[in-house]
Design a binder for these strands. Structure first.
Lengths: 156, 156
DNA sequence: ATTGAAATATGTTCGTA
DNA sequence: TACGAACATATTTCAAT
């Protein structure tokens, strides 16, 4: 069965390969090949095709930042002045290493960001010294993640 | 220079290794070793230490879900009835594949989730059929990510 | 698209310092 | 911790189907 859409066409075998690797990027392709019942060369060729199609963006080692002292995860809704250049504000946000996500959003906020800090004090400093200092950011609304219960990629 | 905290102690070499692999989990350790100026065996040994310490959670292949038709990313603030068992609600949320993050949060919402859907119609169905159906979820507030500008892990 | 086999590259172990 | 050499696995290429 094939899944068709605007950009990339993948079949069930591609899906299986991707789902395995999205779970563990280091899973040997020979192992995946054995499970599927094709050769490693075939899996390899499919991966090249998917990479060429732009579907694969790379692989990341995932660490537990908590063990390095990053214990406060927070979300911040940002109000931008009408006059301000949004890309300029985003550019300045991107220079704050604690900012790990930034979205333009619908709703009351112009921008919505995710911040990872060592503790609440560190969060407060980032908010007051780094974020509030950005031209055009008038007001922010912050809420803290007390506990992340789900963290995963979409199952394709 | 060593970075010390409650749980794990890493030095600058560990940091360099991790930062490389957080960017690209498949970067050969021999290449990293050459850059740092130690042998591959030493890098390997450090990685084993970091893994044993629980700092390394694994590696993930990153894909671009947009190319598979997942084009609507949304955030949903969830109000839970006081009486409801929060873990039970989270459990039911975890059974919705479109829910890719779920946090207990401070502020007005009890739970805050991130959802990835194919389009706005799909989002509406997930909200109305799957999420609103969960016992104890009285009300939700949704906002859509029009454009994600920053997406990264913390630089350690 | 897939195969099998060869060639190359990478990861892993271990005795030693 | 780190090294270097030996060893084990994995990836990549390729001619053939």
């Amino acid at each position: 069965m094939k899944v068709v859409n605007e950009n990339v066409v993948i079949d069930g075998i591609d899906k299986t390969i991707l789902n395995f690797l999205m779970e563990d990027a280091k899973k040997p392709i020979l192992e995946i090949a054995r499970i599927i019942g094709i050769t490693g060369a075939a899996v390899h060729q499919r991966l090249r095709k998917l990479e060429k199609a732009g579907l694969i963006e790379g692989s990341k080692l995932m660490i537990n930042p908590r063990l390095l002292g990053y214990k406060t995860l927070a979300f911040v809704g940002v109000y931008l002045d009408k006059a301000v250049s949004n890309p300029q504000a985003v550019k300045q946000l991107s220079e704050i290493p604690e900012v790990i996500e930034c979205h333009y959003t619908t709703g009351n906020w112009s921008i919505f960001i995710k911040i990872l800090c060592k503790d609440n004090e560190h969060l407060m400093q980032v908010l007051n010294k780094n974020i509030q200092a950005i031209e055009g950011i008038s007001r922010t609304e912050t809420f803290i993640s007390l506990n992340q219960q789900i963290k995963r990629q979409i199952k394709i």
